[in-house]
Simulated scan of single mutants.
Amino acid sequence: MGLFSQKKHFVLSGRTILITGASQGMGRGLAKICAQKGANVIIVARNIDKLKAAVEYISAAAANPQTQRFHYISADVTSAEENTRLLSEATTWNGGNPPDIVWANAGSAYPHLFIETSIETLRSQMDIDYWAAAYLAHATLQVWTKPTSNQANGTTSKASKGTEPLPRHFVMTSSVVVFAGLAGYGPYGPAKAAMRNLSDTLRSELALYNGARLHATDPLRIPKIRNHIVFPGGIQSPGLDAENKIKHPVTTKLEEDDKPQTEDEVATAAIAGLERGEYLITTAFLGSLMKAGMLGGSPRNGLGVVDTIMTGLSALIWSFVGPDMERKVWKWGKENGIGNT
């Protein structure tokens, strides 16, 4: 899958995409590339001034300025009710049709030693880095799995010429930290790991609805639904600048060989993975290597050949890298004590 017809797996031109956490950083980069590829774009964040500036920036990149449309919604995505509201508002703005693509990208990291982090912060990290995506998935999939209005008319959900409608896509942004537990990411990593498990579970459950579309006597008249999850590493952004101010020095030491990507680099890599039809998407080679060692029961991308080769390579490399990283933390503690940020 994705070996010979890359862009057909994720069509953006003429479609509507909603992206949360899109007033800056990776989300803004994603929205710009979607605009360049002809999509109508809805961005979501809390700060209205940043949203207005982001819409101006994104719309300037439109492939077809006369026909493409852009909109912003201010919302607190850590609230289940707000996710329902923003999806409803997006549907109204989109002529009564839900967005074709929804991307749960909102998130923030509080890199700190676990036992030195307050319980309130641990909970807030779970709220923004897991629950925000879970709430949006719940609201979106409830809408997408309802039969289309065509069912009431006794017609099919296919286009007039008998072609299959384009699939809908639900995408979540996780992090490479789910593949390797690192000192200093205790508040953040578990929430992103929960997101990965949710994505695998949704992929399994969505097979039920996608199969029901082909039921002989009572087909479920909905477009096919696909879900994906993206695992970026460090991203040059205001968020990373804020993280570095509170990050423990030992975490900085562990990350010294990981060069952050720009928002455009990470967004380009993520969308390229979607166009190839991938499910688990990394944005840099190091992330791909880390992913290969932690696939477990997750579906492999494409035919699985590259992932299988990388799994063996990753196992060999991690047999050296894992102990080396633990030694670095041990040595730092021996030389500096517990330290602080």
Rank of each mutant, 00 (worst) to 15 (best):
I119A: 11
M310N: 07
A132K: 03
T156G: 14
A183P: 05
L289P: 03
Q261E: 12
I115T: 15
P232C: 08
A45I: 05
P98L: 06
S314I: 02
I19P: 03
T117S: 12
S298E: 06
M1G: 06
E120H: 05
W318I: 00
A53G: 15
A134R: 03
P65H: 06
G337L: 10
S5A: 07
K334R: 15
A80K: 12
Q151I: 07
Y110V: 10
I225E: 05
A31Y: 06
R28C: 15
W103P: 00
R168F: 10
K259P: 13
A104M: 03
Y185I: 01
A267V: 05
K192N: 05
S108C: 06
P165S: 06
T155Q: 09
A272R: 13
E335M: 07
E89W: 08
V305F: 14
A22L: 05
Q24V: 10
M310D: 04
T217D: 12
V55M: 08
N97H: 12
E116H: 10
T283Y: 03
T282S: 12
D307F: 09
G27S: 05
Y110E: 05
D200K: 14
I222F: 09
G297D: 14
A63T: 08
I309A: 11
Q142E: 14
G38W: 01
A109D: 09
F170C: 02
K334H: 08
R168H: 12
N153S: 11
Q236A: 11
A207I: 04
A90K: 02
N94F: 13
L316G: 02
K37E: 10
T91K: 06
G296Y: 11
A292E: 06
V266Q: 00
H71A: 01
H138K: 13
V143A: 13
E263T: 11
Y57M: 08
F70D: 01
